[in-house]
Simulated assay, not measured.
Amino acid sequence: MIINSDGTKPIYVQIAEWLETEILNGNIQADEKMYSQYQLADIFNINPATAAKGISILANEAILYKKRGLGTFVSIDAKQIILTKRKDQTLKKLVKDLVVEAEHLNVSESELIQLIKDAGKNDEGDEE
């Protein structure tokens, strides 16, 4: 992953999202030790305090938990928490934006549904 320091999304949020994706992809398992703030700082060439803030976001959402003196670990429910959060926040927002844009373009509901189905079909054949 490449951190976008010029973007509108704060670096600590990008770190949190990257860690979530690592968990979803199975690269970091439940009850497995998470990267430390210093490891993340080395990986992404960022300030350790910024990395710590990204870790804290996930700890506050119960995706990670801390063991005093041992580090931070992935919670048992991490994947489900992330999936629910991304569906409720990210996916719903994308769908809402899509519906609003379709209304601006006078795209009917059936046309929009067909566009979504076609996009899904195209993705299946685009694997490289």
Results as ranks from 00 to 15, higher is better:
D77M: 06
E61A: 15
G7H: 03
L19W: 03
L19Q: 02
K79Y: 12
K121M: 10
T8N: 09
N122L: 06
D77T: 15
L58F: 12
W18Y: 14
K33A: 10
A52M: 13
L112R: 01
D88Y: 06
F44M: 09
K85G: 02
F73K: 02
A30W: 08
S108R: 02
D97N: 15
S110F: 04
R86N: 15
Q39L: 05
E103M: 14
N25K: 15
E103A: 15
L83Y: 13
I76E: 11
S108T: 13
K92Q: 10
G71C: 08
E101I: 05
F73N: 12
N47G: 01
E32G: 06
A30Y: 03
E17P: 01
Q39E: 14
T72E: 05
A49G: 04
A49Y: 11
I63G: 13
T72F: 02
D97V: 00
S110G: 00
Q114V: 02
N45M: 02
V74Y: 13
N122C: 02
L115Y: 14
E124P: 00
A51N: 10
E128N: 10
F44T: 12
E101Y: 02
Q80G: 05
T90N: 12
I116P: 13
T90K: 15
I11M: 08
A41W: 09
A78C: 09
Q37M: 04
N25D: 06
G71V: 10
